[in-house]
């Protein structure tokens, strides 16, 4: 199989979020800002790549009847590794006492273990394909997931708090033209950072993707 296509399929054609609607809990729960979405996406990519590689290596030796529990144990080990790594390196609070990335993602890091994408790729791809293909597949699908989460996070952050990756848009532009300005921007549409905005933004984003896909198909 062409490895480049194998890698690229995760972004649009087989995007786990927009096309298969898998892994919805972290998609909705961690996209309050673009940086949180990116962090969650990369953490999932790490687990996905390593579990894909190990499962494709071990697939021959795992008896068919206990394969799902075995996959879950392999995935859970990598999730524990990610959890401990993130606790060690991404746990410093921001300069103004903002919660750290680890605190923001919180519960959703251990919950990578029940993310349907990871188990789904293990069962549908890694157990049947070579190590290299599984590695590329994990990387592609994982980064596609990260792309979707970052996009959704950026949209919600722009609408909800009028900033991108923590950069306040209105204040930033005001400072660009007049460095001495003391302008402070107000709040955005808070609902988009809270729960309802997550559902609404994702709903419209999937609808938008569907429409684009139909145009392309014609």
């Amino acid at each position: 199989m062409n490895q480049w296509n194998n890698f690229l399929k995760g972004f649009i054609k087989e995007n786990p979020v927009f096309v298969f609607v898998l892994g919805m809990c972290p998609t909705l729960g961690t996209t309050g800002s673009a940086i949180n979405g990116l962090g969650m996406g990369l953490a999932t990519t790490f687990v996905l790549v390593l579990s894909n590689v190990f499962i494709s290596l071990l697939a021959k030796y795992i008896p068919d009847k206990v394969r799902i529990p075995s996959y879950i144990v392999i995935i859970a080990s990598f999730v524990t590794i990610v959890d401990l790594l993130m606790k060690a390196y991404t746990n410093t609070p921001g300069p103004n006492g903002e919660p750290s990335l680890y605190d923001n993602l919180g519960l959703f890091i251990p919950l990578i273990v029940v993310n349907c994408i990871v188990l789904g790729r293990a069962e549908a791809f890694a157990s049947k394909n070579s190590v290299t293909s599984s590695l590329v597949d994990g990387l592609g699908i994982g980064l596609g997931f990260a792309f979707a989460l970052t996009l959704l996070g950026a949209i919600r952050e722009i609408l909800g708090s009028m900033s991108v990756f923590g950069w306040k848009i209105a204040e930033g532009f005001a400072q660009l033209f007049n460095p001495a300005t003391e302008y402070k921007q107000g709040d955005g549409m808070i609902a988009f950072v809270l729960a309802p905005g997550a559902f609404l933004a994702l709903g419209y984003l999937i609808a938008f993707m569907n429409i684009i896909k139909k145009r392309y198909a014609k």
């Binding site: 609607v21 609902a191 809270l194 729960a195 309802p196 905005g197 997550a198 559902f199 609404l200 994702l202 709903g203 419209y204 999937i206 609808a207 938008f208 569907n210 429409i211 139909k214």
Partner: peptide, 21 residues
Amino acid sequence: NGVKGVPIAFIVAGILAMAFM
């Protein structure tokens, strides 16, 4: 047509979440 299926489900869920807010 564009919002049929999954998208409309999410939009309804969003309105439901707004009610729960």
